[in-house]
Design a protein around this nucleic acid. Structure first.
Lengths: 200, 200
DNA sequence: GCATAATCCCAAATGATATTAGGTTGTCAA
DNA sequence: TTGACAACCTAATATCATTTGGGATTATGC
C-alpha cells in the first residue's frame, strides 16, 4: 500500500534525521524541532510516529544491533578453530562499527547512560552478541587450543572490554584515525592470555 | 573566615546534593530545583556558586579524580616488580571505585557523553592515571619481567578496557555484587598476555 | 561609628524546548 | 457519497534551565 509505504518512509526519515543529529550534536543539544525540521515535518507529526525524544533514542540502535546479530552467524560460518573465529569476530565487529559510526556513537556514548537501557531490546541483543564469544572460548577450552582452565566469561570480559575501550576512544576522538590500526597486534597480545601454553 | 567557610560549605552541600541525585536518577532526570531543594537553597542561589547544571556535572568528578591522582604515587611506592605494581594498581583502583560509587557512576556513565569532556581537567587527570600504567609496562619490558617486544600502549588498552568494562557493568547492575569478585583470576589471565614466556 | 562594597540569598520573570490538543486534508472501503 | 482513519498541521501547554532585580547580612576603608 502506498499509505503504509509512506508511513514507513517517514519513520525512516525521522530515524535517520535523529541519528545524524544525535551523533553530531549529542542527545541533549538536539531539539525535537531540529529533528522534525530535518525530516521535513512539524514537531507534532513526529509524535504520531514516536512516543518522544527518548523513545527515538532507544529506537535507533535497535535496528543496527539486530542487523549485527543477523550477520554474525554468517560471518563465523565455516571458520575452523577458536582463535580464528575470535580473530574474525574482532575484525568483523570493528569493521561494522567503522561502517556505522553514527549508530555506534549512539550505542556507546548515549545509550549506556539511559536508565532504561537494561530493559531494552538492544541490551538483550548485545548480550547475545557477547554470548557467541563465550561459546568460542568454551570451544577453545574443550579442543585444547586454549587453556584448559580458561574461564570463558572472564576471557569475554577482557575481549569485550578491550574492544569497547578502543571503540569509545575512537568515537571520542572524532574518528580521526583508522579504527583497525594496530588491531592485529592487540589481538595477538590478547590471545596470549587465552591460548594454551605450547611450551609446557 | 566565617564567610569563606560558609561559602565553601554551601558549595560542598550543592555538590553533594547533585552527586547524589545525578547518580540516583541520572543527569537528565535531575532538575536544578531538585538539587537546590536538597541543598536547602533556592535555584537562583545555586547559580551564584556554579555556572549551571552542566558545569556542576563536570565539577563533581574533578575532585575525585584529583584525589585519586594524589593517592596513586603513595600506593605504588615501595612495590617491587612490574607485575606486582600492576596488581596493586588494579586492586587499589577497584577499591576506590567501590568506595566512591557515586563519583564513579558520574565519571563512567555521564561524563563520557559530554561533548566537553575532552577539554576537562578530569580528562587530563585520567590520562595521567593511565600514564602510570604505560610506565609500569615499560618497566616490565625493560627488566625482562614482561615480553621484550611488548607495546606498552596496547597493553594499557587491554588493562584499562577490561577494568572499565567490569566497572561499567557493575554500575549498570546497581552494584548488586562485589566489584572485586574474580579480580585475581582476571588479573592472572590478563598478565599472561603481558608476561615473558618463561618456558622459551 | 558610618558609609560603601561585597557576599549570599530569594521571589518572580524569562526563555527554551518537550509534549499535547484540536483541527484540516486527503485517501479509501463500503 | 460518506464515514473512518491516517498523516499532517497550528497553536496551546508544561516543564524546566537560566536571569533579573533586589533584600539582607557581613566585611572593609575612612
Amino acid at each position: 500500500m502506498a499509505k503504509n509505504n509512506s508511513k514507513e518512509n517517514t519513520r525512516e526519515r525521522i530515524i535517520n534525521s535523529a541519528k545524524k543529529l544525535f551523533a553530531e550534536q549529542g542527545y541533549q543539544k538536539t531539539t525535537v524541532v531540529d529533528i522534525s525540521r530535518q525530516a521535513g515535518l512539524s514537531e507534532a507529526a513526529l509524535y504520531d510516529h514516536f512516543q518522544g525524544k527518548e523513545d527515538l533514542l532507544l529506537m535507533i540502535p535497535d535496528l543496527w544491533v539486530s542487523e549485527l546479530l543477523k550477520d554474525l552467524d554468517d560471518q563465523l560460518f565455516g571458520i575452523k578453530g577458536a582463535v580464528n573465529k575470535l580473530r574474525k569476530y574482532l575484525w568483523w565487529y570493528m569493521r561494522r562499527v567503522e561502517q556505522s559510526p553514527l549508530d555506534a556513537k549512539i550505542v556507546y556514548l548515549y545509550l549506556k547512560t539511559n536508565a532504561n537501557f537494561l530493559n531494552t531490546e538492544v541490551y538483550s541483543n548485545v548480550k547475545t552478541l557477547y554470548l557467541y564469544l563465550v561459546e568460542i572460548f568454551e570451544e577453545g577450552r574443550k579442543t585444547g587450543e586454549m587453556k584448559t582452565d580458561l574461564n570463558p566469561r572472564l576471557a569475554r570480559d577482557i575481549f569485550v572490554g578491550t574492544m569497547d575501550h578502543i571503540i569509545t576512544r575512537w568515537l571520542l576522538k572524532d574518528r580521526s584515525y583508522g579504527l583497525s590500526d594496530n588491531l592485529e597486534a592487540i589481538f595477538e597480545l590478547m590471545v596470549d592470555a587465552f591460548k594454551a601454553n605450547h611450551s609446557n
